[in-house]
Simulated scan of single mutants.
Amino acid sequence: MTRLVRRQGWVAGLLVLFVVLLVITRLIQPGYGSGDFGSLVRAVLPYAFAVAAQTIVVIAGGIDLSVGAMMALTSVTAASMMDGASEEYALFVVPFVLAMGLVLGAVNGMLIVVTRVPDIVVTLATLFVLQGAALLVLGAPGGAVAEWLRATIVGTVAIPGLPEISAWIPKALVLLIVCLCIIWIPLKRSKLGLSIYAIGSSELAAFRSGVPVARTRIIAYALSGLFAAMGGLALTMSTGIGAPIPGPYLLASVAAVVLGGVALGGGKGGLLGPIVAVFVLRLVRTDLTLLAIDPNVTAIIEGAIMVAVVMFGAFITMRSRQS
Results as ranks from 00 to 15, higher is better:
Ser201Glu: 14
Leu281Cys: 04
Ala243Val: 13
Cys179Phe: 14
Glu147Ile: 07
Glu147Arg: 14
Thr216Glu: 13
Gly242Asn: 09
Met110Gly: 12
Ala252Ile: 00
Gly101Met: 01
Tyr89Gln: 10
Ser190Cys: 04
Ala299Thr: 11
Ala99Asp: 08
Gln131Met: 11
Pro212Arg: 12
Met318Lys: 13
Gln54Lys: 08
Leu136Arg: 14
Pro212His: 15
Ile159Glu: 02
Ala48Tyr: 00
Leu233Gln: 03
Gly155Gln: 03
Glu164Ala: 13
Leu138Phe: 06
Gly31Ala: 11
Leu290Glu: 01
Thr317Tyr: 06
Phe92Trp: 09
Val114Asp: 02
Thr77Ile: 07
Met100Cys: 11
Ala43Gln: 12
Tyr249Gln: 01
Met70Pro: 02
Leu138Val: 10
Leu162Ser: 10
Thr286Lys: 09
Leu73Lys: 02
Thr236Trp: 05
Tyr249His: 00
Ile120Gln: 01
Leu73Ile: 13
Asn296Thr: 08
Leu65Glu: 00
Val280Glu: 05
Leu271Ala: 11
Val23Gly: 08
Ala140Ile: 11
Ala198Arg: 09
Gly267Arg: 11
Leu104Trp: 03
Ser238Phe: 03
Ala85Asn: 06
Ile219His: 14
Ile241Asp: 06
Leu259Ile: 01
Ile182Met: 08
Phe312Met: 07
Val41Pro: 12
Pro212Cys: 11
Leu173Trp: 09
Gly270Gln: 03
Pro274Arg: 05
Gly84Asp: 03
Pro186Ile: 04
Ala48Pro: 01
Gly33Glu: 11
Ala172Met: 08
Ile199Asp: 04
Trp168His: 05
Ala85Phe: 05
Leu173Thr: 07
Gly62Val: 03
Leu91Tyr: 06
Ala48Lys: 00
Ser39Ile: 11
Leu40His: 01
Thr239Tyr: 15
Val97Ser: 02
Phe315Ser: 14
Leu290Gly: 00
Ser201Thr: 15
Gly267His: 07
Val19Thr: 07
Ser86Glu: 03
Ser323Ala: 09
Pro46Arg: 05
Gly35Trp: 08
Ala106Gly: 10
